[in-house]
């Protein structure tokens, strides 16, 4: 809104850096302070993002095997998420990429993948 692009970048870097440092230093599987998933506590089922904190912790320690164990779907989605952010930021420069990633089919595919993953991880 009223914030300039430079300040937005500074804020993003500070927030991401602090969060990254915290998740690097503390293991969310052992720490009491790590927020727990409301969906899992209320229903007993895993939500699509359950394991995300453990995955970030493992990724920051470059332990890809345990990252895969924590949440394989989110690990596969990481490149997609990065590309999504890139296409939104560089919308003027790469309009075709933006149009592709934001086409109804692509969005529906992402939504269906998330719902499918939620169902499958709770069945198996």
């Amino acid at each position: 809104m009223g914030i300039s692009a430079r300040w937005r970048a500074v804020i993003a870097v500070v927030v991401l850096g602090t969060a990254g440092l915290l998740y690097y230093l503390y293991d969310p599987a052992r720490s009491q302070l790590a927020p727990k998933c409301s969906f899992k506590l209320l229903t007993g089922w895993d939500c699509p993002g359950c394991g995300a904190q453990r995955m970030v912790h493992s990724l920051l320690h470059l332990d890809f095997a345990s990252a895969w164990q924590a949440n394989p779907f989110l690990l596969c989605m990481m490149p997609v998420l990065i590309l999504l952010g890139f296409s939104a930021l560089w919308r003027n420069r790469y309009p075709r990429m933006y149009a592709t990633f934001n086409s109804p089919i692509a969005i529906a595919a992402v939504g269906v993948a998330i719902v499918l993953w939620t169902v499958l991880r709770n069945i198996f």
Partner: peptide, 10 residues
């Protein structure tokens, strides 16, 4: 879309 996916997952 990015925010929607992040909000859904996290």
């Amino acid at each position: 879309l990015l925010w929607a996916v992040l909000a859904t997952i996290c």
